[in-house]
Design a protein around this nucleic acid. Structure first.
Lengths: 343, 343
DNA sequence: TTGAAAGCGCTAACAC
DNA sequence: GTGTTAGCGCTTTCAA
């Protein structure tokens, strides 16, 4: 097994030329069934896998998708999101014989070096498509670079704010259920996002003339423990929120415990909704509703879009950024219910 | 910018042959300083980056490190760990001009298809080194394959159990501090690991003839909320643990709150230690001690070992698995203290 | 110290 | 439908 099976070996085994083998593995229609069958068998028995390097050098498709992410990822949830995208993206790409590569890039938005570095990476890898992960998707020089090179690019749908504000959506839903006193617990995480969601929550309340409970936690993102202290303080008085929104799943879980220790039943006395999804939210009692931004799924979708773009348009046109639907999904679970008649 | 800058362009600009350029970028000693200088300047001004594909095809180093992970990663902490490794590994590799690629592989340990698939990936990528992420590192057929191909491989040090049992280490430390009644809260996560740690905890207690509080949570991994209920039940009676170990960081944080709501001071009345590190553990009050397995750092170390192996040994010998030190680090923080004299 | 030649595995473009 | 030819960008081996 010196250097691996090559197309030549397959060609010999199937008694055809290299080109025919090439046609088969590239799904060219102009191959006779018999030849195709023999080639496929040879491929299977020999365990042949085309060399990525040779393939991309020959001028064909490299079979590589590139995802660039900001270098200095510091948030705590970030690694998790990244991991989720890696998992989902790899699965999606692998299913179509593609490979997915993650590369860090300087986070500084306007950094001119970033574009240069991306150019280098592109030259080295010849990716068939590039996914710009936030906040890189907002860097015009990167987009321009990709466009000028004719490389399809994609971004996570809805990263541009407007399209999905979880805080607002959650608040609206609770208001719809008759709640008027709604607490909001921001948890550690991306502060900018937190602020946006909090603003959305305020907006929803203002529109419907609902009074938010004053003690929601805002600017300073409290740790889990501090947040729980606040929640307890919030829930002890007779006049208390009938619903609480938490940014993080673990906070919601802990709030459930606090409520229980205070003899408050969920959802009878208190509705609970988390702005992040987590398997534990399903298994607790009662299961907690969540507003979920399926980042991993969206990412996988972006990969698929890119792979499809290559097949159809080829060099005709650079794939536009078709925004996917489903950017934010409300997962209803027993932890939310209509507000009690009176407080 | 049709297809990118090639070595030819650089050679022309520096007025030398391609070989000379090649020598420069490969740090060959046999290049005259003047030529070297001109080449380097040309590279800089042209923004030349060697094509990975051409390079690996020419028979040289591909500049690619491959990390394979089990396909069906289901644990909730897993994505986070994976993301952390991606972050740390990319940084380490990027610093030396390497690229890091993550590929999923069937999880089933003995799956014969896994080896075949890995062989294919190797053929396609020609990686210079492969990192087998647990539990893939225990698959002999994969190791064998890599060895037979002469590809350096690495695994995360200490994944083989023995070297680091966080449960045991934490228990020992607490016993050392005089604690005898120690609770253990297993949290959702890798059940196997959980079981090992729990066993280690039991072992430590048994050795020192300490009595674990019976109500620790074992086999069934409770959700956060359930765990808190249990902790509360544990802490209410007069006879209660003087220390609690939690597998997850968020559980520790929440336990801190529970203790507080029960008027128990940490660490005066209760010592607390988490078996996972998290930024929040530092910011809470008091900061909570943690036993941390720096997976990301270990992974980056593995990458570095692989890159070094290529430079020195080349094809002489496949790099052995030098276990790193520092596989488990105890981060002392104010949440642990000597046990109170009497209970 | 440098250059010329050959070839890595594959795919486009062109023949047949 | 199929085989032939000519590279892709680089590195190795050999000559100078």
């Amino acid at each position: 097994m010196g250097r691996g099976i090559t197309i030549e070996d397959v060609a010999r085994a199937a008694d055809v030329s290299r080109q025919t083998v090439s046609r088969v593995i590239n799904h060219s229609p102009r191959v006779s069934p018999s030849a195709k069958a023999r080639v496929e068998e040879a491929i299977a028995t020999l365990g042949y896998v085309p060399s990525l390097a040779a393939r991309s050098m020959g001028g064909g498709r490299s079979g590589v998708l590139l995802a660039v992410f900001p270098e200095s990822q510091t948030g705590s949830g970030t690694a998790q999101e990244l991991g989720g995208m890696l998992l989902a993206g790899s699965a999606a790409c692998g299913a179509q014989g593609y490979r997915l590569l993650f590369e860090p890039l300087c986070a500084a938005a306007g950094d001119p070096g970033a574009a240069a570095k991306l150019a280098g990476t592109i030259g080295a890898l010849q990716p068939e498509g590039v996914i710009l992960l936030p906040p890189l998707d907002r860097a015009p020089e990167l987009r321009k670079l990709l466009d000028s090179r004719g490389i399809p690019r994609a971004t996570l749908p809805g990263s541009e704010a407007a399209s999905g504000n979880a805080g607002e959506a959650a608040a609206r839903r609770l208001i719809e259920l008759g709640h008027r006193q709604i607490g909001y617990i921001s948890g550690p995480g991306d502060p900018q996002r937190s602020e946006r969601w909090l603003a959305g929550y305020r907006r929803a309340l203002a529109e419907r003339d609902s009074r938010a409970h004053r003690h929601f936690v805002a600017e300073d993102q409290p740790g889990l423990c501090t947040a729980l202290d606040l929640v307890r303080a919030l829930l002890v008085p007779t006049i208390r929120p009938t619903a609480i929104i938490t940014e993080r799943a673990d906070t919601a879980l802990a709030v459930l415990h606090v409520a229980r220790s205070l003899k408050l039943a969920v959802p009878r006395d208190l509705s609970l909704i988390a702005l992040a999804e987590d398997p534990e939210l399903v298994t607790c009692d009662p299961p907690i509703a969540a507003l979920h931004r399926p980042v991993a799924a969206l990412f996988a979708g972006a990969c698929e879009r890119l792979m499809a773009a290559r097949k159809t348009a080829d060099d005709t046109a650079v794939s536009a950024e078709l925004p996917l639907e489903l950017t934010l999904e409300l997962i209803e679970r027993p932890s939310i219910a209509r507000a009690p008649r009176a407080i």
